[in-house]
Design a protein around this nucleic acid. Structure first.
Lengths: 198, 198
DNA sequence: AGTATTGGTTTACAGTGTTAAATTTTTAGC
DNA sequence: GCTAAAAATTTAACACTGTAAACCAATACT
């Protein structure tokens, strides 16, 4: 009896379409151009249908943001399993971060409320700054510079703001065309940070 | 005399009132709550009057942004005239940057399109990244690490993204109450950057 | 005094997020 | 296959937004 299953499958598909459409519009016209009605137009439903899938626009953006953080975390775990050297882990992840910025710019924007994107929820940040002691980067920093847990957490915050802050400033101030030119500066900044720790 | 001057004086006052009101609303309710009508309400004019003073909302925000950059530049010049050591200039300015973030958070947000603030103009950034060779920080970096002009400009960009990026990440992810706690991390990051150059 | 200019407002348009009511479509029971 | 209940979807509406055109009243100049 696949009636429930079929419905659920369709629901999942529509939900995914909504998220994808929001990202598509944001990518091409910027987040300030993303509206409930425009999304509804593309997925060929009437606007109120979106509220069957998301409580409101903020929750929709929150989902996109969460998926962004989840993706980066997965990539980080892969790296952790590939390399032993803490410095190497930091550098490799920096490359992932940069690639993410280029390939999923619109997701990055909503992750950090940049360029008109606005998701009021602070949930993702709270999660990001709790349960640090088994965050691969936290562990890496603890290995490079063994200190108290609090001291390592402070260094973690410095790493966090350095890397994501650099990416944020780049995407905010640089036109798309010149953005790629900034990768060496980013990597150099991360290397400098890493070196200066020891 | 007096009739033109009086009119011009009033015009200047109204213009200033508009800018101040926009900042006030942004400060208390966030930039997403700043609307032409709300500003008009406060200054006790009808909405279209605002278009006598600013071409559109974007230009209004651009003005606030420009004033922010201008203020920081003035403070930087003061510091340059007070200290000789390039490291000292960088550190002192970092303190000014932090204070600016705390005291004029809403201006900082529009300067970097954070938290729903959106000014499409890229003018300020273009200015910020041109005419570098007599920017006090550029000069300081050139003194600490004498290299080609291009190499110094690259380091300047790294300083720029490190400092403003750190502030941006802090204001985006931290609640107002805990924001002040992050100053030591910020200052440590700037010192680490400065040390790692030599 | 009559006309042109200025300063300001009212009205209007197209768009926004969101909710409630109305309506259509699908399912379940006989 | 027909009807009643339930689910899915749409239409209509509200209170907003930025902005432009039309209008009005007071002032300045001839």
């Amino acid at each position: 009896m696949g009636i429930f299953e079929r419905r659920e499958r369709i629901r999942k598909q529509v939900r995914a379409d909504i998220l994808k459409t929001a990202r598509d519009i944001a990518r091409e016209e910027g987040w300030q151009a993303v509206s409930i009605r425009k999304i509804a137009d593309v997925i060929e439903y009437s606007p109120p249908i979106l509220y069957e899938y998301f409580d409101n626009k903020d929750k929709l953006l929150e989902t996109i943001r969460d998926e962004g953080f989840a993706y980066l975390h997965e990539e980080l775990l892969k790296i952790k399993n590939l390399y032993r050297s803490p410095e190497k882990i930091i550098i490799e992840f920096a490359q992932v971060q940069w690639r993410f910025l280029l390939e999923q710019t619109e997701v990055f924007q909503v992750m950090f409320n940049l360029n008109g994107a606005l998701c009021q929820s602070q949930k993702a940040y709270q999660i990001e700054f709790s349960m640090l002691n088994n965050h691969p980067i936290w562990e890496a920093l603890a290995m490079i510079r063994p200190r108290s847990a609090d001291a390592v957490s402070k260094t973690f915050y410095e790493w966090w703001c350095l890397t994501y802050g650099f990416l944020a400033m780049s995407v905010v101030t640089q036109p798309k065309a010149t953005l790629t030119n900034m990768e060496p500066s980013f990597m150099e900044s991360v290397r400098r940070f890493s070196r200066a720790l020891a």
